[in-house]
Design a protein around this nucleic acid. Structure first.
Lengths: 224, 224
DNA sequence: GAGGCAATGGAACGTCATTCCAGAAGGGGG
DNA sequence: CCCCCTTCTGGAATGACGTTCCATTGCCTC
């Protein structure tokens, strides 16, 4: 009888970090729906038990993967010597937008809490930059969390669109179809939506995000 | 032999609306995780096949339930005679905030697309009210979607917190614990977070939401 | 009152996360 | 050098779940 169970410690040791890295890759490839432990154990050439030794359960794994995405994006951020706080804030937010756009499964899981150290660090950066502006200190907390929530909310929403994209259908195509559906609505009940339907067709989520950020920053300035 | 299968049409007929209503109730009671077809068929005193006759699958059911929550909240909204557009916009957003806060499972599923008629109607209302302000028409689309995304993003984030609340632990308690954890961080790497930790303890998500909305509206006014 | 269509309910199926356990490196003490 | 114990591994087993399938039934029309 060959004993196929329990082959002991391996040379290319498994570790929490290796597992999380594989999870990020698989989430990128298959999305959250398609991400299963079967896929994960196949990629890692191991069994479920080995994975569960390093990670409590799937939820924790997705959480760790999400935090890793944020951490990597923050690590890749280059300092901008001489730039003012507002410029650096814009750069920070756009960098995070791009990261969460690329790893489209992550945004809904981002929470600024002690369970996600890197998300915490992100909030810290946003807050520090806002504190550098001339805004009254009383508003710093509200402004920082509002911007943080706006970032996460927008990317979560954008990725909800991305999720429905099926292979073979381009994003632009889908947006065009949706714009057409908006335009086809009854102008009596939907005066606004039908009017702006055209803008939906050729808009960029990224541009729209930064427009929202600017509105926010304008509001901050107006308050100061 | 007793034939227990297929008892034909019932007097208290099932219908899409009945199914969706039951889904909303069960989602409220058990959250998205605890919401299963077993629970649903038990509550409706029927089998899985009957439910699937009215609804394509679980995803569609959750989507319909989400849209119903928005629809009900919009329907309950009372007109405010004599109030200006900005006031009415604030009321609209707060009403929706409360609805999404109550049905904490819904926010992550809200998407402004033709698949969710009532979400569409919500965007329409937001857009119409913004169009009533003196803002240049060029900005209406961006402003309306930004506010819409902010609403959905904030409620989704808040409900992520609510989800982790276990029976027996109050929300305030949990917030206090998190605030303590923030305060305990290293002030060298987290100068901002440690400084505002106290504010987290006694803050209201709802107040913070409306503060964010105000910042937005200030920004809009500054632009005009 | 026959025939067809709209609904129904539950058995059966496949997939998935998670648990359980028998076992195998590696290291330290004898 | 050998035993033992901790750390780690792989896969079989389990149970819950979404979904499909289908025999069966009541209502409606002709």
């Amino acid at each position: 009888m060959s004993q196929t169970r329990g082959r002991g410690r391996r040379a290319d040791a498994l570790s929490k970090d290796v597992v999380v890295r594989a999870a990020v890759d698989l989430l990128d490839e298959h999305g959250e729906r398609g991400f299963t432990f079967k896929l994960l154990t196949e990629r890692l050439q191991t069994g479920a038990g080995a994975v569960y030794w390093h990670v409590a359960n799937k939820d924790e794994l997705v959480l760790l993967a999400t935090d890793k995405v944020i951490g990597d994006a923050l690590a890749a951020l280059r300092p901008e010597p001489g730039a003012d706080a507002e410029t650096r804030l814009r750069t920070l937010l756009l960098t995070m937008y791009d990261a969460l756009d690329q790893h489209f499964w992550a945004a809904p899981h981002v929470v600024a809490g002690s369970a996600m150290p890197n998300a915490m660090l992100l909030l810290e950066r946003v807050g520090s930059l806002i504190a550098e502006t001339a805004l009254p200190a009383r508003r710093h907390f509200a402004a920082a969390t509002a911007l943080f929530l706006y970032l996460v909310g927008v990317t979560a929403q954008d990725s909800a669109h991305a999720k429905t994209v099926e292979p073979g259908v381009s994003r632009d195509e889908l947006l065009g179809q949706e714009a057409a559906r908006w335009a086809a609505l009854d102008p009596a009940t939907f005066p606004f939506v039908t009017r702006v339907a055209a803008e939906l067709g050729d808009h960029s989520d990224r541009d729209q995000f930064i427009t929202g950020v600017d509105l926010f920053l304008d509001g901050l300035r107006a308050h100061g």
